[in-house]
Structure formats: C-alpha cells, structure tokens
Design a protein around this nucleic acid. Structure first.
Lengths: 201, 201
DNA sequence: CATACTTATAGAACATTGTTATATAGGAGG
DNA sequence: CCTCCTATATAACAATGTTCTATAAGTATG
C-alpha cells in the first residue's frame, strides 16, 4: 500500500549529547561564529528544533559549552602541582594560560558569553569555583609567608586580571613581545615579586 | 573625462560624518550589537547603501570606530601627568582604566574587532601608537631607575596584559572584589613593585 | 492486543541582519 | 536642451535565530 513516506527520525537516544558534542567540535575547529543552530543540528543529525527542545535555544547550548569550559579549566589548574605554596600558585597561573592556548575558541566563548547572555546560577557557580581555586592558592601562599597579608580575594583578583589580560591579548594576536609564553611567565614572576612585599599604600 | 578633483561635488550634508556620528551614538548608548547597517543609516537620515558607498560595508564603519577609539585612548593617556617617571607610568595605567570605564562599549569594540575583522595597516598603526606610548613611559621609568633593566617592550607587554585584563573583567562584571577601582590601583602598585626589583629568572 | 493520548521532532514559515542588484534623481558637459 | 555619469533610494537575496504546525514515535489504558 502506498503510504506517504515516513519522515526519517534519529534513532539515537542521546540527542542532547550529540548536539553538545557537535557544538563543541564546531567551536574548537572553526570558532564561535561557526556555531549556528542549523550547523550544530545538521552535524548532530537532527533538526534545528532539537536545539530548542533540549537546550531552550542557542543560548542554552552556549551556556552548556561555557560550563564545560570552566570544568575543564578547573581540572587543568588542579593538575598543576608544585613543591611549595609559591610554586603551586605560579604553576597554577601557567596552567591557566596553557588551557587558554590549547582551547582559544573555547576560552573566548567562556568570557564573551559572560556578558552577552545572562547565565544561570549553576553556570556562574562553576566559574566561581574556578576563581575560588585561585583564591585558595593565594591563601596558601599567604600562610607560607610568600604573599603579603590582606584580603585574598582582592589579591587573587589582581592576579586573575593579569592572567586574563595576558591570554586574551595573546589570543587576539596583539602581543608585541617575541615570545608570548616567556612574557607571560615573566609577568607572573613580576606579580609574585610585587605581592611578596607589603602593600605600599 | 578625467576631472581635476576626485570629488567635485559634495552632498548637501556630510554623509560620512553623519554616519560615523550615528554609529558612535548607537555604540555608546546601546552597545556594539545595536550597530546595524539599517539602524545607523536610519539615524543618519540616509539609505543603507550609504554605508557601503562611504565605508565599504559594515566592517569599514567598525574600523572607523576602532580608530576613533584608539585616538581617544591615546589622548586620555597622554593627559596623565605626574611628578616623576614612576608616577607618570602609574597614572598612565590609571588613565587607561578611566577610558575603559567611561566608554565600555567602545573599549569592547576596539578589542573585539581586533580579531574579527582584519584591520587596515593604518588602523593597526593607531593601536600600535597607543602601545608605544606605554613603552615610552616604561623606558622613562627604567632611566629613572624605578623599573628594572630589560626589553621595555616585554615589560610594557606585561603591564598592558594586566591593564587589559583588569578593565575587561570589570567590564564583564565578573570582579569579585568589592571596589574594582581600588583593586585595579593596587594591581598597578603590585606590578610597579615587582618591576622595581631585578628579574628573578 | 488494540486504541487513544502525549511527547518529541521534522519541515516550513517568519523576522532580522548584512549584502548586492537595479532603477532613478540630479547635476556636469557639450 | 540633451546626454551621460555619479550617488542615492528601493528592492531583492542569502543566512540566521526563532516560532509554528503536522505527524511520527512512544506510552498509557481498556
């Protein structure tokens, strides 16, 4: 009997995972602008509607990539070990850059989305956990006497400012130094040296 | 035939200036995303085509805003005066932040466009002039003996990294410190203190 | 097992954007 | 006065995020 042609449907049960994986691949390979609803859905083998039913729209998909990114960043920093507190703080900073260099498009997305879309509390919490990691290493360095006393959050913010600026400018390709990695490492040393002496003000 | 003047007849109004002004107003008021070809042309009272005949497209318009921004940033830093070389470097850093805080959307555009569109050599030169300004203040501080010897470009890059990161994170609203301006000022002090001692490596 | 109901998905449609093509108004030159 | 050229306005085109609608797949119910 001549029935109307049935519409092909995706047998895969893990549509959410397929979409997220497709978006991640597009992001790493071609950058954030390559993430279009149609491109992601096409790569995942589903219709564009899937992005809306599963993630509530493109923004939800980007937020999922944002959270993934901070989870990975947290892992990378956590993997930086050192003999003493100063070294752990220093290597944590270098690990921060290593992540950004290894995943430039992901890093860019993480901080661009921070402004463009209003993130859910859960997503923000993941970012805050990563910052708390830095605060913890600062506190350890204070206890060890290699970083001056004072609000560790304020000091960690100073460090984060410098780290973020360094990887951002390097990612933009607007570094004027010949060896950005070395300049970054020196900047971290400069900060640690400056933080070793009491606040001048 | 060939005319002596390339543009013998000017339109009744300064269309180029009107478009640029309209784009600047939209940028400052509503941010970069508000800059659409139709919105800019409408505000300037001309047809969308004007953006293409005058600026070669939206990218040309954004580049003009980019150049304007670096010109203004250069002026603001240049206006920062101080009693000695260290103070001039310090106040230059604070002036950098003052510009970014006063024109957050403009600042964001300046650094976003640096990646997204390939800028003309003239536009890049304006940005490099602004960086050279910072290098000059570093050199003066080296001569005065308040910044360690070494490649001034490398040291200026360290400083610029920190400045850019500070204003970027503040602009994103992801500062964890209670008083971002104070944290920024302290970060500059930390850097200057660290740069006062010879390179540890 | 068969039927009715719910849910998820495919495909099309809509609004907005940057861009390009086409037609027209308004001087400049002869 | 007529013709040509430039600039502008209008319209059309392609891509994108989003919404709408019909229907296939799945689930409960008798």
């Amino acid at each position: 009997m001549a029935r109307a042609q049935p519409r092909p449907r995706t047998p895969s049960a893990d549509v959410t995972g397929s979409l997220l994986a497709a978006a991640g691949e597009l992001l790493e390979a071609e950058g954030q602008d390559a993430i279009t609803v149609r491109a992601v859905a096409g790569r995942a083998g589903v219709a564009p509607m899937g992005v809306y039913s599963r993630f509530g729209g493109k923004d939800g998909l980007l937020e999922a990539l944002f959270v993934q990114g901070f989870e990975e960043l947290h892992r990378v920093i956590n993997g930086a070990r050192g003999a003493d507190a100063r070294e752990r703080l220093r290597l944590g900073c270098l690990a921060y850059r290593a992540f950004a260099v290894a995943h430039p498009n992901r890093y860019e997305l993480m901080f661009r989305q921070m402004k463009e879309l209003d993130l859910s509390p859960e997503a923000l919490e993941q970012a805050e956990r990563t910052f708390a990691q830095l605060v913890g290493r600062v506190e350890d360095a204070q206890v060890a006497g290699v970083v001056r006393p004072g609000d560790p959050v304020d000091i960690a913010q100073q460090v984060w400012n410098a780290l973020h600026g360094g990887v951002t400018l390097e990612g933009l390709g607007v570094t004027f130094s010949a060896d950005p990695e070395r300049t970054f490492a020196r900047m971290v040393e400069t900060l640690l040296t400056g933080l070793a002496s009491p606040d001048a003000r």
